[in-house]
Computed example of a mutant assay.
Amino acid sequence: MQCIYQTRVMNSGKMVAVLLVERMIILFKDNAPEELADYCILHNENQLSDIIQEQDVLVIGDTEYKIRYVGEEVQRNLENLGHITLRFDGSTEGLGGSIYLEDKAVPQIHIGDRIAIYRK
């Protein structure tokens, strides 16, 4: 498998649990604006080596999720800001800054967890 993207969780905002109930996770590099940081999973790496595509696989910790849809702003936002929204509802279309993943349970995120995207 080819690794397309990887990062490591450095911090979790105090409002992240609210978004988990909504089946979404917001990723932002550790320079997130203060007014957004409480809602984000913050990371300090941002290693992106290729264009993220449908059918790639996102891995959080030990759990894999097939990517169902990649919004048109994902690549640019991830490259420039380390910022995207992960949505776990199986949608095959949606908002530009989001990656939509297969409809599976939303993982608990822990500091130190690795988040990666692979192409099989």
Score class of each variant (00 low, 15 high):
1 M>H: 08
2 Q>H: 11
3 C>H: 04
4 I>E: 01
5 Y>P: 07
6 Q>F: 09
6 Q>N: 11
7 T>Q: 01
7 T>I: 10
14 K>L: 11
14 K>T: 13
16 V>W: 07
18 V>E: 14
19 L>S: 04
19 L>H: 06
24 M>D: 01
25 I>G: 00
25 I>L: 15
27 L>N: 02
27 L>C: 09
28 F>L: 08
28 F>H: 07
29 K>F: 08
33 P>E: 14
34 E>R: 11
35 E>S: 12
36 L>A: 10
38 D>C: 14
38 D>R: 15
41 I>S: 00
42 L>W: 01
44 N>F: 10
47 Q>E: 13
47 Q>H: 11
48 L>R: 01
54 E>D: 07
54 E>T: 14
58 L>T: 03
58 L>F: 05
58 L>A: 02
60 I>T: 02
61 G>R: 03
63 T>Q: 15
63 T>R: 13
66 K>N: 13
66 K>Y: 08
67 I>D: 00
69 Y>A: 07
75 Q>L: 05
75 Q>T: 06
76 R>K: 15
82 G>N: 00
85 T>C: 12
85 T>Y: 03
86 L>N: 00
88 F>N: 00
89 D>V: 04
90 G>V: 04
93 E>G: 03
95 L>I: 14
96 G>E: 07
96 G>W: 08
99 I>H: 02
101 L>E: 00
103 D>G: 06
103 D>Y: 08
103 D>C: 10
105 A>D: 13
107 P>A: 07
107 P>Q: 07
107 P>E: 07
108 Q>F: 09
108 Q>E: 13
109 I>E: 00
110 H>I: 05
111 I>E: 12
111 I>T: 13
111 I>Q: 12
112 G>T: 11
112 G>P: 08
113 D>T: 07
115 I>S: 02
115 I>F: 02
116 A>C: 14
117 I>H: 01
118 Y>M: 05
119 R>A: 05
